[in-house]
Computed example of a mutant assay.
Amino acid sequence: MNAGAQTGVCYGRQGDNLPPPNDVVNLLKEQKIQRVRIYDPNQQVLEALQGSNIEVVLGIPNAYIQNISTSQENANKWVQDNVKTYANVKFRYIVVGNEVKPGDPFTQFVVPAMQNIQTAIFEAGLGKEIKVSTAIESGALGLYFPPSNGTFGSDYLEAYLGGVIKFLVNNDSPLLVNLYPYIIHISNPDDISVEYALFTSTSIPVKDNSLYYTNLFDVYVDAIYSALEKTGGNSVRIVVSETGWPSSGGTETTLDNAKTYNTNLVQHVKVGTPKRPAIPLETYVYAIFDENQKSSEYEKFWGLFLPNKQPKYPINLN
């Protein structure tokens, strides 16, 4: 099994009925899930991950970006407190910010914060093990169709993404992308069929030059690769840092659709995309659990497991 094809999970914690972190880590081990994304350096979660051998994608919440950008000392302290302290946690990436938008008040601080964290990681002697990145939403694309026309929105590039891409190239780091075919489909159901979003389409594939597209996921990933190529980011690898399908709470939200999407996804990412065939695509499914404190109804039902740790449907992420 190529390590790049291991599908990980996102450990969202916006629920008041979730099991304690030790139980969650035991569940990941039982399910042989080897990668997890967490959104902040929660002490209990990091303690539970110590010695587990599970690779961890650790987020720096948007609210902390400005503080970390203002001084190297702040970044060093953050790395000391949240990375160095947990010497037996296998950190894979530090993610500076999640879905930062051009108009956010902290946008200008993303790249300086990434640079400070990168310096702190190197000074801590962890430069070879840990990569620094940020996670963008697929909406950062100005154009996505056909995929070869993929370009980032000029507002994103000017606000911070241009600087991010230079940083990623210079540090051989991947770009993390949150990609939700479900949300893209429900916002445009007339043009994008549910089958095209679920990897089950039997209609004639979309042709783009010499490449053929049978699903929405590949269209977006390759559009982002095209956008990277147009902005000097040819060498940058994409990691899909969130994707999934809700099982309730909205249109097309059935257990069967959630199972279909996630099962097809796990198989699909092993073989890459039309633009990058045979290169497994590192991917993280949102989420481990349903989260009853999320705001909109359909956001509450993305879990692979119920809060009592029972799987909603059989799935093997490996």
Rank of each mutant, 00 (worst) to 15 (best):
V36P: 12
Q80A: 11
G139L: 14
R35S: 13
Q43R: 15
L58A: 10
Y298I: 13
Y182P: 05
F91D: 12
L126R: 06
L175P: 07
G127R: 06
P311A: 15
F109Y: 15
E73D: 07
V239F: 08
N98A: 13
S226I: 05
G4I: 00
Q293Y: 01
E55V: 05
T214D: 11
L161K: 00
S235G: 01
P20F: 04
P189W: 01
K32D: 10
G8A: 02
T202F: 06
I38V: 15
T254P: 11
F122R: 09
R237H: 09
Q267S: 12
L281P: 05
T254W: 11
D218N: 10
N188T: 00
Q310T: 14
S71L: 02
K230E: 02
F152M: 04
N42M: 11
L28Y: 03
K77C: 00
G249K: 12
A140Q: 11
G8L: 02
P102L: 13
L304E: 07
Y212A: 09
F109N: 14
Q14Y: 01
L27F: 14
S52F: 10
P280E: 11
P61E: 00
T107R: 07
E137Q: 14
K101D: 02
L143D: 12
V239M: 09
Q43I: 12
S69P: 13
G272A: 04
F91Y: 13
A63C: 03
K300Q: 14
V164I: 04
G125D: 02
D190V: 03
L216N: 03
N2F: 07
K29Q: 14
N262P: 00
S247K: 12
D191I: 00
E73A: 10
E73Y: 03
P174K: 06
T254K: 04
V96Y: 05
G150Y: 09
P102V: 12
Q44I: 00
T85I: 01
S148Q: 07
E47D: 15
S203Y: 04
F122M: 05
T263S: 15
V25L: 12
I184L: 06
R35P: 02
Y156T: 05
G8E: 02
R37L: 08
V96P: 07
A135C: 12
N171Q: 04
I192N: 03
A197W: 02
N22T: 11
Q108W: 00
P280V: 13
Q72F: 02
A287D: 15
Y39A: 13
G303E: 08
D191C: 00
D104M: 11
Y86P: 05
S248R: 10
V221G: 07
Y180M: 08
V79M: 04
R92K: 15
E55Y: 09
Y160G: 01
L58E: 09
N257T: 04
Y86N: 04
N88A: 14
V194I: 12
P105T: 13
V56M: 02
V83E: 03
F301G: 03
N292L: 01
I54T: 09
F145G: 01
L228R: 03
F109A: 15
T85M: 05
I288N: 06
Y144R: 03
G272T: 08
D208E: 03
E242R: 05
S193D: 06
S148R: 14
L255E: 14
L179V: 04
I33L: 08
K32W: 01
Q80I: 05
A5N: 08
E158N: 15
